[in-house]
Design a protein around this nucleic acid. Sequence first.
DNA 1: GACCGGTTCATACCCGAGTCGTGGTCCCCC
DNA 2: GGGGGACCACGACTCGGGTATGAACCGGTC
Lengths: 218, 218
Amino acid sequence: MLICDDHEVLRTGLRAVLRWAPDLVVVAEAADADAALTLAAELRPEITLVGLGTQGPGIPELVRALTATGTRVVLLGEAGSGGDMVEALRAGARGYVHTTVSSERLVDGVRAVLRGETLLDATVTGELLHHLDGGRPGGEAADRNPLTARQQAVSELVAEGLTNAEIAARLQVSRATVKGHITVALRRLGLRDRTQLAIHVNRVTRPGDGRQVGPANG
Amino acid sequence: MLICDDHEVLRTGLRAVLRWAPDLVVVAEAADADAALTLAAELRPEITLVGLGTQGPGIPELVRALTATGTRVVLLGEAGSGGDMVEALRAGARGYVHTTVSSERLVDGVRAVLRGETLLDATVTGELLHHLDGGRPGGEAADRNPLTARQQAVSELVAEGLTNAEIAARLQVSRATVKGHITVALRRLGLRDRTQLAIHVNRVTRPGDGRQVGPANG
DNA sequence: GACCGGTTCATACCCGAGTCGTGGTCCCCC
DNA sequence: GGGGGACCACGACTCGGGTATGAACCGGTC
């Protein structure tokens, strides 16, 4: 896990709290957005805790860039920062916790995000719903997955190890089309190639179902 | 899944048995080695069941060639064919089941191989160990992980989404070396490309504990 | 010493992957 | 009806991935 906040005291406190959770290892701390991005790209933590006061190009942009590296962003908010929080969730953040949250709730929340769930502090869900209603009609579905259905389908087949030709045959389209979907999916997720895409998908959609990896025509 | 055996009756029986496993789809049957290789290259099944009586250049060669196409070979043996079986396992086969095996055990065994495990019929493990002892001193460690330390290290970096150039920089070797290790690792694991390798590594080194995906120093 | 396997590296080659630009369709909004 | 903006589909192009081959060095075993 990576911690990013401009308050050193808060970072220290988080580190101390998380020390009680042996399954959550803090690998690094960052004081600003630049450092967070560098560390996330290098260390590839599963979770990145981001304080809403972090200095940089802006929280939503930071969340987008961090998410692109494959990490899951959990926001650390303060009173009155609801607007930022909503925008950050739109940008792909997986959770929001108030800085006054109890240690137990914080740890449980991070674990929930690790399991693929989304964590929302009760103190802001009302505001969140309000913003979502008045925000955009489409919704963009950015809270879960920024990919369209087609891109998602292609990505899942990539994550099964199929080549573009095999995916094309499976989806009854041309190779060029598959490549196009993958290109867009890679850009939206901030990934580089199909290998990172496969890793990402296999990390988000946890295993457990009896799924067939081969080119079986189903 | 691809079935290859010279006994048509046996093939039909296997197909019938496997029909009860909805996650295991038989995509084709072959009666000899040539047909098996052609079908495996074309359909790229995850599993190929090979009868030890299959006509062709020889079982070990067939296993090697099939493995090269990316499929995982499970052998179907008969009494007295222990020697062939050992050689075939050396050649990269992932499992061995006796033709008199029960339907349940067969299905479970194939699923185990799909999970990356190795399946060995209890009726031949004794003979196998004997052959392994008297065979080569090295032992080849084909039961768990057929990769050398270097190949393992490269594979793990592939599984983190790094490019060959990045891996080369990380390990202080040339790109050519990285490519060489990857080529060998792919062949030994019976995989096709770095994407499948990444999936494989991420599936074998299971999560669950407080694992950190990045190259965290500690 | 001969042999074998692992590691390292270079060169050359083929092919798949990924990008880019284009065109079509649908839907929403003015 | 005419933009505008998505998503989808596709072809041409460039580049990195993967293989093949050959070679050198080192550490073991026969």
